[in-house]
Design a binder for these strands. Structure first.
Lengths: 150, 150
DNA sequence: ATAAGTTATTTGCATTTGCAAGTAACCTGA
DNA sequence: TCAGGTTACTTGCAAATGCAAATAACTTAT
């Protein structure tokens, strides 16, 4: 294998870690964390998702998610509801407070997107997004077909 | 903000998480972990790095690294040495066993690189690497100039 | 020469994480 | 209809993590 800084997982992790820590620091004053933002962002996309769905889209292990949601419920950001059609299923709904927090987090998220992509043309940015989607799909194909981890 | 799956930190995290878990599973039978591999890969690049250097290149918090290195020393993969010129500094050296493990991990790392980039042309792969380096540099510029976290 | 400040690493401690096992609800086939 | 299997989530528990404080060694200014 060649030099470390041409090794893709290394570059990926490094960039991801940097952006994650930085974003985490930025949202802490609002009483939020990166993980909380991930859940809120997913629910903003579509409210009323089940634990398993959220685990898949956020890449947070479902057992970790259980406890994260516990804490978010305590903060009154979301509520758990039982799916009446299937009582095993738990469905999450954002509260008014949750929406309020989401609205305050959005501009921060947008700012980070901008900073991360500073100097990229619209086309280059889209290339990058596409490449990351392909990369994910490649790994997905390989993976035994089951749950997410975080 | 637009849909979640055009949000860059999301794509980055998702791809990184998938590749990390998958690689972690692959190396477990050899008694290794992703983090151990990161340290060994960094030391393969240049032996005798200090804790702080390793923390920066691996994106592992230096306190976490201390304990990771403890465990790696117990496994006889590396040894700590004091820098004679500056007794605060700890410098890491890979042992024969460490090199042996590294040699066994390398082909796995190469395989994952290949799988991740399946369907990418050499040029596309290089584009992606370049984009990730730029992205990292952008975040680096923003960050208050100090330590890494993991 | 030394007090005050800085740098490198480790330690303390509370939180987060992830695997495995547990529980509850649903489905399927005889 | 009910036994056995599957699915969805939660809990138990040990390990990993990250911030802050502690320790130790160096540097600088006086």
């Amino acid at each position: 294998m060649g030099p470390l800084d041409s090794y893709l997982p290394y570059l990926l992790n490094r960039a991801g870690a940097r952006i994650a820590t930085s974003f985490g620091e930025a949202v802490r004053p609002l009483g939020a964390t990166l993980q909380i933002w991930r859940v809120l962002a997913a629910l903003r996309e579509r409210d009323g998702q089940r634990m398993g769905d959220l685990s898949a889209t956020t890449s947070i292990d479902v057992s970790t998610l259980t406890r994260l949601v516990d804490s978010m419920e305590k903060k009154r950001l979301v509520v758990r509801r039982r799916d009446p059609a299937d009582a095993r299923v738990v469905v999450l709904h954002v509260t008014a407070a949750g929406r309020r927090l989401t609205r305050r987090l959005l501009p921060i998220a947008e700012r980070y997107e901008k900073v991360a992509l500073r100097g990229f043309s619209a086309n280059e940015a889209e290339q990058l997004r596409g490449a990351l989607r392909r990369l994910y799909a490649n790994m997905d194909a390989l993976e035994s077909p089951h749950r997410a981890r975080g």
